[in-house]
Design a protein around this nucleic acid. Structure first.
Length: 555
RNA sequence: GCACCCGUAGCUCAGCUGGAUAGAGCACCGGACUUCGAAUCCGGGAGUCGUUGGUUCGAAUCCAACCGGGUGCACCA
């Protein structure tokens, strides 16, 4: 909030320098205004002089001098200016500027941190999209939380978000599922059975078979068609998946069944349109899409010689439907094992006349679990993978969510079960939540002692002059910008890091200065500090809730 | 072989649209509870930012090549 104000001032100083002929406007939009890493280098710093120097072949420190001259007229909020290093202009603001952020924060309350930068842009976030062949695994868990967090962040930054789960409950995969279930159904009854070669070996298949046996007895023994088995398996597995998602706090607006693409004729019409554009051809009885025209090394088959489409065709048709449904931005959250499909879909989108730049694919790497410092081995085929439900049983929802959001999508995520199950210390989730609970505790105590609730208009905020207090003020003032960055970059880990840093600053402050201490802290200071504390607590709460975490008042 | 991702402290990771002396947590060592919650804090050691070149006033960040790890490269999804 302060940064934006200062940026306007700096921009107008840049412009007046241009008007006065001090420099050209070549550097417009190229320079930055950022918070220096190191203390003592100002509240903000701009590299404008260095950027201009490079373009105009002048001495950067000399240009910096001119800039300081213009900037120093802005003495309403600027306290001090200095030229440092190779030509940075460091800007020190008056403490009052920071103290005054408390009013708007406390006034905005639960809405502080929300913004309208999204301008109501319609975004479709597709994630999870696991076919109903088994319970959600840890990998799906990461994706579910990543997608959910992205959706939440986009929502609070003014985007109109639709969360969608795309699935397919037909085809070969499902036949195998049904056959696997039938085999277990027969096995339970001690009858001869044939387990499919690439069947699903998980224990949950037996559970499904048992349900069928309980419901229908032996009536399905002679059943040649796997269909009834598939149907029951899909039903039960979907119920299981939905239950897990709900438990994790993940919600969907829409479940999109691949079959609707066939029923509505979208598959055929995509092929027709591509054919009309001369982008497909027949070879070896198959239909090929000329993906080489879109930068790929080879063309791809979209309809097999058997007449069945490959997975690419419905994927492309699905994305066309997303565009037709009038979304401005399509965000796809996929596991990195789907990387091969991305270029195909983008080529299809472009071929059909839509802008591939409106599609952003967030590919996340895999999750590894460690326990006692050793890797927990997982295999999908043998169904030795750890399910999300098992993980939730062990660490709880907040911890699971936090850990899945803690790393950027590009990084492989190591889930340390030892660390995650520690409740007493060392767990970053509790570190942040404890900060919030602590502040609630102070506010409760203030109330018990009959101290008035925080009224920033009445308190003398100029008493907030400790270094730790100013740091906290600066941090909470930058909260909206942090949320905005995390949202627009589709990077929830940035929001997590913000909260962890804020927690660190808060705990340090807590251990050094007291808020309520009638014998040693003047009442006026207590009042001012209560305002600060209330604002920091609000930021913790808003940040935690925005990410789907709880903000406990007691722990 | 080709494509994408990763390589930063003993371990797990930030930082990467170029900027000032490269950060945090864990682990290790030493301190702080008659004081608003010690699930906390304070201090300490710890680094060829995978390697080698290049671009630049300036490179962990950009480019090239190479090394190491992951994931893909079907008329499977």
């Amino acid at each position: 909030m302060i940064r934006e104000r200062l940026k306007e001032i700096v921009d107008s100083c840049f412009a007046s320098g241009v008007n006065e002929g001090k420099w050209s406007d070549a550097a417009a939009g190229k320079y930055t205004l950022e918070v220096p890493k190191r203390e003592g280098q100002g509240d903000f710093s701009t590299n404008m002089a260095m950027v201009m120097a490079g373009m105009e072949k002048k001495n950067p420190r000399e240009i910096a001098g001119l800039l300081v001259e213009i900037l120093s007229a802005e003495d309403a909020i600027i306290d001090k200016l200095e030229i440092a290093g190779p030509g940075f202009v460091n800007i020190f603001l008056k403490p009052q500027v920071w103290q005054e952020v408390l009013q708007p924060i406390l006034r905005t309350g639960d809405n502080f941190g929300r913004s309208t930068v999204g301008k109501g842009k319609k975004v479709l976030v597709e994630f999870v999209s696991a076919n109903p062949t088994g319970p959600l695994s840890i990998g799906h868990g990461r994706q579910a939380i990543l997608g959910d967090a992205i959706a939440r962040l986009l929502e609070v930054t003014g985007h109109e978000v639709t969360r969608e789960y795309y699935f397919n409950d037909a085809g070969r995969q499902m036949r195998v599922l049904g056959e696997s279930t039938r085999a277990r159904y027969l096995e339970i009854q001690g009858l001869p059975f044939e387990f499919p070669e690439d069947g699903y070996q998980g224990e949950y298949i037996r559970d499904i078979a048992q349900v069928l046996l309980d419901e229908q007895g032996a009536g399905l023994v002679g059943q040649e068609d796997a269909e009834p088995f598939t149907k029951k398996a899909v039903e039960l597995i979907f119920a299981d998946i939905s239950g897990t998602l709900e438990r994790m706090g993940v919600r969907f607006d829409n479940y999109y069944n691949e079959h609707t693409l066939y029923d509505a004729g979208h598959i055929d019409s995509v092929v027709k349109e591509l054919r009309e554009k001369g982008l497909v051809y027949e070879k070896d009885d198959a239909v090929w899409f000329k993906t080489t025209l879109f930068g790929q090394e080879q063309d791809r088959v979209i309809i097999k010689s058997s007449g069945e489409p490959t997975y690419r065709l419905p994927d492309i048709a699905y994305h066309r439907e997303k565009f037709r449904r009038n979304f401005d931005w399509l965000v796809d959250v996929f596991g990195s094992d789907h990387i091969a499909t991305v270029p195909d879909v983008l080529a299809g989108v472009e071929a059909l006349g839509y802008d591939p730049k409106k599609v952003t694919v967030v590919l996340h790497q895999f999750v590894t679990l460690t326990r006692n410092g050793k890797l927990v081995k997982m295999s999908t085929r043998k169904a030795t993978f750890v399910t999300v439900d098992e993980l939730l049983d062990e660490v709880g929802v907040d911890v699971a969510r936090f850990y899945f959001m803690m790393r950027k999508a590009d990084s492989q995520l190591e889930f340390d079960l030892d660390l995650a199950t520690k409740e007493e210390k060392d767990n970053p989730v509790y570190y942040v939540q404890y900060g919030h609970a602590r502040l609630c505790s102070i506010l409760r105590r203030a109330k018990d002692m009959g101290l008035e609730a925080a009224h920033p208009e009445q308190a003398d905020l100029s008493l907030l002059r400790e270094a730790e207090e100013l740091q906290l003020l600066k941090s909470i003032a930058s909260f909206p910008a942090a949320i905005e960055a995390a949202a627009l970059e589709l990077a929830p880990h940035k929001a997590i890091f913000f909260l962890m840093e804020l927690a660190g600053e808060l705990h340090s402050y807590y251990n050094k200065h007291k808020v309520i201490d009638p014998e040693n802290v003047p009442l006026a200071v207590t009042h001012a500090r209560l305002c600060l504390i209330a604002a920091v607590q609000q930021v913790f709460k808003n940040g935690l809730l925005m990410l789907g975490l709880t903000a406990p008042e007691k722990m």
